[in-house]
Design a protein around this nucleic acid. Sequence first.
DNA 1: ACGCCAGAAGTTTTT
DNA 2: CTTCTGGCGT
Length: 722
Amino acid sequence: MPAEALLTDLTDPQREAVTHRDGPLLVLAAAGSGKTRVITRRAAWLATHVGAGHVLAITFTNKAAEEMRQRIAALGAGRGLTVGTFHSFCARLLRQHADRAGIEANYSIFDQTDRGRAIKDAISRCELASEAWKPSNVELRISQAKNHMLAPDRMLTEAVDFRDQTIARIYAQYEHILTENNALDFDDLLLRVAQLLDRDKALRGELEERFAYVLVDEYQDTNRAQYLIARRLTETRRNICATGDPDQSIYGWRGANLANILDFESDYPDAKVVRLEQNYRSTRRILRAADELIQANQRRKEKQLWTENPEGVGVCGFIYDDAQDEADGIAEQIARLHERGRSLGQIAIFYRVNAMTRVLEEAFRKKALSYQIARGVEFYNRREIKDVLAYLRVMVNPSDEISLVRIINTPARGIGKTTIDRLRAHARETGRRSIDLVAAAETVGNLKAAAAKRIGEFAALLEKLRKVAAGDSVREIVEKTLSLTGLERTVADQAGGDSDQVGNLAELVSAAAEYDQEHTDQKQPLQGWLEQVSLVSDVDKLDGAGAVSLMTLHAAKGLEFDVVFIAGLEEGLLPHLRSRDSADELEEERRLCFVGITRARQELYLSYALYRSLRGSTIRTVRSPFVDDLEGADVEWHDRSGARDARPRRRAARSEAERLALRWRVGQLMYHPEYGTGRLVRLDRSGSRTMARVRFTAYGEKSFSVEHTELEAVEIDGDFEQ
DNA sequence: ACGCCAGAAGTTTTT
DNA sequence: CTTCTGGCGT
């Protein structure tokens, strides 16, 4: 395909973005503005002009990477282009340059389960009680530290209290455990590459030479480490192309920094900026709803969204009685759409939390509608799957003690906790690896003879597996592991034959087979496969054929469907409870809803239920403030009686909390149980909620929703202190 | 060493 | 309402 043909069906701004050659480029692409097409064409255009080998494209999911690869192949732009997610790109880079990164190339990638285990170990090695130092909390703090590229020693010196000091100590111990295990966690993959590029100028030079043109998609969701990686890779040539949309930033909780995209122009003063504002995806009505909603965000760059698409059918809202009713209602509507010829593969349901899938699944089964759920990650977190993978990980990386401990008595072979503890303790005392003691159990003095014998048998099993693992068909390796270890039999026996565990194992084998087919000349196929399964994202295995797609709003990013349902528009669910205290988080929730709406091409259905049961008890819900935000858009609301125009009325009276807040004045003292006293610096009554902004000496400024916060005014002698 | 049972705890999103 | 964990009994 001649290069010019890449451009014929593009609009002017699109063509501008595609053919910009040297220097920084920012593509601010509104939802549905043909961004995917632009970056694909741009990658292809660059490939034909500078050579595919010089182009690096970073996508947000593996699925997006795969699609890009295929589209570029279809455009005939040749092979040799590097496409992947930040995580997969970094994982590969760290293997290739393991020596320079200071790790071994066969390192394991720890997922959250492994990380949780390692953190628990770290806490106990610090001789702390896991009740007082909750692993989940410690985990969060460590992840945040890594996202800010903060090392344990610096965290320790910067710690202001005992709590922070202790966290830093656990963090240091955790890092030590990772090293012992020859393992990296997800954050490390990015962090290590960022550090490596900083430290190793020679390598950076090489990479800059190789990847002379770098494209980063979904730039609004990059975190600090990702930002630095992109920046370092393009230090000399400055050929960075960032694409994204600030209104679709939804990963702030994972360390994504909206400032990365907002400050691009000041980072690169010579940047060319292309705005793609025409929407080609949605009907006018859908786009109006999206725009109406996002307008409610204060922290935002104003943007003109427009389309030449037809008006389309009305956006519908449905008020259901409860979650089950909602699920049934949605299933019923989908059945009707299907009868009228709508393909199931073009229909999707989005929701805020995974817990909502259950009722939906039941409803779909009742109606015999086929569906697929986007949850690749969950599959690889299943116990039976993790067990198999742990065996394989030990084969590839014998230092991986977390995996070793997982399999040493799985399936049960009479090696109990006491034995394992003794083995590990002895390993620590002698400075040897547990795996080496397994192979020489008789040398571990304090083991009982029977236990040592069983460990010896286990060692023989590992030896057998090691020979198997040297093979070059991953499928065969997986199959033989299943049979030699007895995992297959155990699962079949326990499950009585018909649970989905057996099916999961079969699925794992076919995943391995698929990998074999796609990677015929891989030097280390097992290692490669393990890496791939460690880094799967939820949407990776969605295939769009013949089934309704169910997924979280987060997973919906980057996808599009003819018909979209968004369920559970309720206060506390969407926006989620966790966002109640912070204006920024509330805005992120609104963006999340915006992302959902803008996935729809032709039809959009919103819904909420009047009652929802949560953890056993059923509560009366309050509809989402986003429903009120949409009041200016012509959404037609129906209630369960079928009555049309059941348009939600505005909340009649101010709540008690809001009435109290009417007496607050900017400048007065406030008290918050978590942050202490602070001064009120702003009161914002413009949105659907009243927001108060308070400056605390120790914590800086925080925003609170008056409706929900525990913030109160400090009163002195019955009057406010001024 | 293992398996069962009772009780507690859990409130989001994911590479 | 679940899922996991820890303790206790065999």
